[in-house]
Design a protein around this nucleic acid. Structure first.
Lengths: 174, 174
DNA sequence: CTTTGACCTGTGAGTAGGTCACAGGTTTTA
DNA sequence: TAAAACCTGTGACCTACTCACAGGTCAAAG
């Protein structure tokens, strides 16, 4: 769903908003509704609404119809937010970065800090998953020799009950 | 059989329930309230209540005070559920296994299937995280040479905006 | 001019697996 | 006898969205 397809959508967006506009004011006047911004950034329109509720995007209102209006700044913020999310920043962190940028404070030192922390988290996650994989492989190997058995009131499934999470007796070496 | 239970709590549990009982009926008569079961299994009492609501545990009621009563079977089920959760089984899967065991069908073949699937999932997760780590390290290295900069209306944080998620070794040009 | 369909709005629910808070009842301890 | 500890069920909260719904708006087709 919503697989990035910038080449196909860009003409429609710009065509709708600027079919008569000169290119020099693209970045200033770009005036998008929810779905247009969402398509431009390759995200779900509900994500745009969600980010707006969360204060990451700050559109203006059209008083005539109460619609939200997003400009090029919002598009940059949205794209930035998506990149930061891919890097593992939480939404509060993203908002913090954007707020700092709004106040003309450079958020980059903070970004470096959080980024280092995130890298450590990722590496810890990898370690844990690798340990889990090792234990699972060990269990699978051990289960080769175990019969299935029928629950008899003493064991539910000996495959799992006999799996020791703390100290697998025989490790699978890799 | 349950030699792995924490030694510090066993006396209080057994002492409360069996201060005069002989050891031969421990497994049959063990009669625990929520917190006792939770302590015995090393989980939060709310988890016991949650699992009870979800149908994984099937305590009896004391009609006098409306309290839940858990026996050794529930302790086994709870410990089993925790082990299965550590192995990556979802709660519905755990419940399915327990239900099958209740019906005297051997859940083990199903366990093997789900387990294989889980192992594949774990390995995919590891791959994704390793790719992420690689991209993060590449980004960190690239950032060594980049100034922090103050938000100027064109960039929010060039550290992130200049991070290319698709081709980390190639920097974007502007 | 009306209808149709696509879009807009806000709100609320759902996801997984618990954890915590709350109000009121019970049991144990001092 | 009173306080502390525990019990009960219900419901909110956590992440980061996603989806559903009811009602309003708008452009084009008939």
């Amino acid at each position: 769903m919503y697989a990035c397809s910038p080449p196909s959508l860009a003409p429609s967006i710009f065509g709708q908003a600027f079919h008569t506009a000169a290119p020099w004011n693209l970045a200033v006047l770009l005036n998008m509704k929810v779905k247009e911004l969402a398509t431009a950034a390759g995200v779900n329109p509900d994500t745009v609404r969600f980010y707006t509720r969360e204060g990451l995007l700050k559109p203006t209102r059209n008083p005539d119809n109460n619609y939200q209006h997003y400009d090029a700044e919002d598009l940059r913020r949205l794209r930035f937010a998506r990149k930061a999310r891919q890097l593992g920043f939480s939404l509060p962190e993203v908002r913090q970065i954007l707020d700092q940028a709004d106040d003309h404070h450079s958020p980059c030192p903070m970004v470096r800090d959080v980024f280092q922390q995130r890298l450590a988290d990722v590496e810890r996650e990898i370690d844990e998953l690798q340990q889990l994989r090792k234990r699972m492989k060990t269990a699978l190997a051990a289960w080769q020799d175990m019969p299935d058995g029928t629950p008899d009131g003493h064991t539910i499934c000996r495959l799992i009950e006999h799996w020791d999470d703390k100290a697998p007796t025989k490790q699978v070496e890799e």
